[in-house]
């Protein structure tokens, strides 16, 4: 997993709980990386799961909720750091639809080794979109956080219904996103 995810997770945790608390968590987890992360490096996904669990305990926040907050955090950083992707997008659905075929294409140019999840999308009539997340990592809550942040970014909050299942060793989640009328 790309180092940027770890760096951002630590950033968020510091924002929520302060550096000392984060230092404590990092020292308490016996991570192979020693808690040393750089944005350009790659680290095992298991360390991310360990960190999420540890921050969850330390912050007294359920892991799912922490993931969701992290998803929102990442979306905000994404919107701030890469405005080019938002330039010709007028609504949340076209932004979400562009992840698979625009955003991930650019990511692969910089990081050919990146293991990216897939996001299938399908319009379901007016104001509804189905988005199917499929990944080797169980980051469905993170995903939902991002989707929520996206709909809010465009000023169109939505009701999201999620169904999960496993398929060929993969975590699959179907998100049915309905914009509030």
């Amino acid at each position: 997993m790309k180092g940027v995810v770890f760096v951002e997770l630590i950033s968020m945790a510091e924002d929520l709980a302060g550096e000392d608390a984060v230092d404590k968590v990092l020292e308490g987890c016996d991570l192979p990386s020693g808690g040393v992360f750089t944005t350009v490096g790659n680290y095992p996904c298991s360390e991310l799961m360990t960190l999420v669990q540890a921050f969850s305990t330390s912050l007294d926040t359920p892991a799912g909720e922490l993931q969701n907050r992290f998803g929102r955090w990442m979306f905000a950083r994404f919107a701030q750091g890469y405005p080019a992707f938002f330039k010709d997008k007028n609504d949340a659905f076209s932004m979400l639809e562009s992840i698979e075929n625009e955003v991930h294409v650019e990511v692969r140019k910089l990081y050919p080794e990146a293991e990216l999840p897939t996001f299938e999308t399908r319009r379901m009539g007016d104001g509804a979109l189905e988005m199917i997340y499929s990944s080797e990592r169980p980051l469905m809550d993170f995903c939902q956080g991002m989707i929520e942040a996206c709909t809010e970014h465009f000023g169109t909050p939505a009701a999201i219904e999620r169904r999960e299942h496993r398929k060929d060793d993969k975590y699959v989640a179907g998100f049915e996103i309905r914009l509030a009328a």
């Binding site: 990092l26 020693g34 944005t39 490096g41």
Partner: peptide, 10 residues
């Protein structure tokens, strides 16, 4: 230490 190591790693 972590910052130094991260810089070196990068």
């Amino acid at each position: 230490q972590r910052a130094v190591l991260a810089k070196k790693q990068a």
